[in-house]
Design a protein around this nucleic acid. Structure first.
Lengths: 236, 236
DNA sequence: CGCGCTACTTGAACATGTTCAAGATGATCT
DNA sequence: AGATCATCTTGAACATGTTCAAGTAGCGCG
């Protein structure tokens, strides 16, 4: 069983005469109960009643803190993000080779996310709906997204990679998209320990490395400009 | 209101002493009722009871023909596929320029799918779950997927495009993936008439065209080989 | 005709996500 | 202390997807 630390930072101690500490604890208890149950039985077989029971609160109370059952998976989303950033941090200390840094960050994600692969389908399903606050493109998940893009910014900036400035600027976002692609593949990957996703990462990283470096060739400039322009125009 | 023709082919007349014609009709009636209601009120506000009512059957009967509410959206999936193929067929007669052919096929899809954009989110959500038979990667939807890839095969084969054989062979599947990307963007595109998706297509097509043609350059061979290899290994 | 069989049809019953009106708690003010 | 107010907390009630045991319809066979 995986030990789960809740992400709820009890850090905004700035409200005047901070109440709602009781509230935070209840919220955390509910989130923790949900995470346990999701891991034990999966998303579908976890009922809101069971979550409320295990957290020792009423069902209505669960809804006071989480607008819907789907909102309960947000905790995973956040947690994976936080754990990933922490785990990746270490490996990023170890090398300045772009390809290695990228590979580390991507495989680390697969490691961190592994315990959740079982119900990742449901997880993903929720995130896939455009109107969902969990969508990786939504404004609500902007924080997590930015944090993730920052991670890739560090991958680029701490590396030996020499590329034209405009590409360098867009690269973190492009790599984040690559990560989204990896996630997509991962979700659909039924292999043991997500072997195939890991293989994908091992194969795709050198390719990306090669492509990015090729962007310095004179003949590539036009194409690269187009790509950068495309990304720009596509951003909301 | 869009006229909806059901996809149910009453074509397998090969069963001995074919009964189940009554059944086919009921099935079609239910699918039609569902489609009307989905378009009128969207997915969520359409209840199974309402579908059964409009189709003039009992709710249990609706479940006799469709295993779940989600299965009712399969009809859309199929229908868009069929309409797209038909609509694209015409434009493919008109030109042999690769870029134009590709652009036509992609924009035609946006045209065909437009009426469904309203609840495409739900549609997509369903399709996004890996275990769902509606997933574009699932074995169940293999038929539709193959048909779609065939369409891109025709885009390539009827075109003036000159590229190395291995790429030519992989291109249809790659273009299908591109289409999936467009769909992903489209689903998240809140703009009027999906303007932004159309803009994306206009921008991305020349880029793809350029990239594919670049693949003939000697310096590119290695990269292209890698890409082809990647696709191969990733296919289940 | 009556029997049996398969294909179909029914709606009540069930499971579970969600809402809501009513109440409990505790801090702050007078 | 008592009043007031925001913040929780409750569980019954509701909505809706889904199941299922019981029926009905038509068809072929003896």
């Amino acid at each position: 069983m995986v030990t789960l630390t809740t992400v709820t930072d009890s850090a905004h101690r700035s409200d005047p005469a901070n109440r709602s500490d009781r509230g935070e604890q209840t919220r955390a208890a509910i989130a923790a109960a949900a995470q346990e149950l999701f891991l034990e039985r999966g998303y579908d077989k976890t009922t809101m009643r069971a979550v409320a029971d295990r957290a020792g609160v009423s069902i209505g109370n669960a809804y006071y803190y989480f607008a819907s059952k789907e909102h309960l998976v947000q905790a995973f989303y956040d947690q994976i993000q936080v754990e990933h950033a922490a785990a990746a941090h270490d490996s990023l200390e170890r090398t300045d080779k772009f390809a290695e840094r990228l590979r580390e960050v991507l495989t680390t994600w697969v490691d961190v996310a592994e315990p959740f692969h079982g119900f990742a389908g449901k997880f993903f399903k929720v995130a896939a709906e455009p109107t969902s606050p969990l969508s990786p493109f939504s404004t609500e998940s902007r924080g997590a997204r930015e944090a993730s893009i920052d991670l890739f910014r560090r991958v680029v900036e701490g590396s030996d990679l020499k590329v034209p400035a405009p590409i360098r600027a867009e690269l973190p976002e492009l790599l984040w998209l690559l990560q989204m692609g990896v996630v997509l593949f991962w979700v659909h990957d039924p292999s043991d320990g997500q072997k195939r996703t890991r293989a994908l990462v091992r194969q795709v990283v050198p390719l990306v490395d090669k492509l990015v470096r090729l962007s310095r060739l004179p003949g590539m400039r036009g194409v690269v400009g187009d790509v950068v322009e495309l990304i720009r125009s596509v951003r909301p």
